[in-house]
Structures are given as C-alpha cells and as structure tokens.
Design a protein around this nucleic acid. Structure first.
Length: 257
DNA sequence: ATGGCAATGTTTCATTGA
C-alpha cells in the first residue's frame, strides 16, 4: 500500500501534473495541500477519470486540503478540521481507508517568528497534538501526512546557519513538531538511511532548486503499528522539475500488507 | 540535466507563501 502527500500550490494550476503523477505512481491514497479551491470548483470529474474518489475541504485563494482514494478502496468517517479548535482555514481532513486512519494536514506557515501568524501556528500545532493523541487512542494504525511547515532538524536544512532561528526552523516550531512524535508517532523518513541534503521544498526564487537550496518540511508520521509495516519512505524530487512545478515535491511511504 | 518567484484576486499591484 502506498500513501502519499503533496502540497500542489493550487490544484487548478497543478491538475495536469497531479493526474500524470497519479498515473505514473498509482498511490492508494494521496493527501493534497493548498488546493486553493472552493469545494464547488474541485475537479471531481478529472480525479474520478483518473481512478480516484476525492474528499475535500477547500476555500478560495488559500489553504484547502483533500484526500484522494484509489478505486477499490473505501473512505469511511471523513472528518474536517481539528475537533474543538475553531478555525476558518481549511487545513485538516481525515478518513479511514483499509483500516488505516489517515490525517492530511496543512500546517500554518507562520510567516515570521514573533508575528501573529507565528503564534497562530504554535496554537494550531498544540491543537493538532491534542487531536492526534485522541486519534491514536482510537486507531492503532494512524498516518499523518502533509505539509508540516517545520524542518525538524538542521540536517533537514540546506544551510542551517542561514536558517537558524528563522520561521520553519525556530526552536519553538521544532518543539511543536517533536510533541507530535512524543504523542507516539515516528517520522517515516528517518526510519531509513537517506541521502544527505534530501528536501521536499525549494523556493521558486534564486535558482533554489537547481542549487538544491531546500528544506524538508513535508512529512509522513506513522504510529507504531504502521512503522512495523513501513518498507520505504521517499521524496519524489523529480516532480519538482520542468515547467510549472509546485514548489513542493510529493512524499510517499510503502506499507507492507 | 534542473534555471533566475508563483498564484490569487483585491487585477496592472497587494498579499501570501516558506
């Protein structure tokens, strides 16, 4: 079973790339972030034609998340948002597929350390941790996938000195991310030996991608029951190449049956 | 084997992203 996540930075702009990627990779489930589409404008016809059933929670211009489930699998108990956390922004969607509780997340960016958006990000992370503790109590098989907007360690940063203390790398953000791990989840990428300087996001500016000036901020977290099934965790850097790429690459895990 | 911001809507600039 393959679970994937991809911040598409506008599903409208990225639909041709997404459909091609689905055809080439055939994940069983893919969580999308930054669809930037109201629900009425979601391209259901196209995702259906590609062999996926889509569940989504979107809004105009910003945010927006979706879970696409390959034909032959059923999505049960679809839920939007973080229970008990009042939030206009569409950033979380969950579903149960093949006995696995899937939570797709688009964590707030935080803009700048100390800003209102930064405080919102940290509050949001605390609410997510509460939600995931509750999900873990109900589901032994839990996968949390998406754009976490945190580079967990310096080895997830192309130039740690440049980024030290900056948003996405600050210690309070890293502590907020580690709180998810402390709840009982593992960063699937670090279950395996990985090449150094492997990233999931590169700025559109300043030749960041060809210079590999990136960050690893897109993650797949797994509960112990899924860690024991996990055979691989990877980032598809090739998807960042070419015309009109998203600034993020898709991330995936392979789970044994 | 890559390329010098991109996407959106408030639209010809401002806002946001990371």
């Amino acid at each position: 079973m393959i679970l994937s996540a991809w911040n598409v930075n506008s599903l409208n702009m990225r639909l041709p790339r997404l459909l091609a990627w689905l055809t080439a990779n055939r994940p069983d489930v893919i969580c999308l972030q930054e669809t930037k589409l109201e629900d009425a404008k979601f391209p259901s016809l196209e995702t259906t034609a590609a062999g996926y059933t889509a569940h989504y929670a979107g809004q105009k211009t910003y945010n927006g998340v979706a879970i696409l489930v390959r034909n032959g699998l059923e999505a049960a108990d679809v839920a939007i948002g973080i229970p008990g956390f009042d939030d206009e922004q569409k950033r979380v969607i969950a579903a149960t597929v093949a006995g696995i509780r899937i939570v797709g997340v688009y964590v707030p960016n935080g803009q700048a350390v100390g800003s209102d958006k930064y405080r919102y990000k940290l509050a949001w992370y605390a609410a997510l941790a509460d939600m995931l503790r509750a999900e873990l109590a109900r589901h032994s098989a839990l996968a949390v996938l998406g754009d976490f907007n945190v580079a967990p360690e310096d080895r997830d940063v192309h130039d740690p000195a440049l980024w030290a203390g900056q948003v996405l790398c600050s210690e309070p953000e890293r502590a907020a991310f580690r709180a998810l791990l402390a709840a009982g989840l593992s960063d699937s990428f670090r279950l395996f030996d990985q090449p150094a300087m492997t990233f999931s996001w590169w700025d559109y500016r300043q030749l960041a991608f060809p210079k590999n000036h990136g960050l690893r901020i897109d993650h797949i977290l797994l509960s112990p029951a899924l860690v024991s099934r996990c055979a691989a965790s990877r980032i598809d850097r090739a998807a960042r190449k070419g015309e009109k790429p998203s600034d993020h690459a898709p991330v995936s895990v392979d789970l044994r049956d």
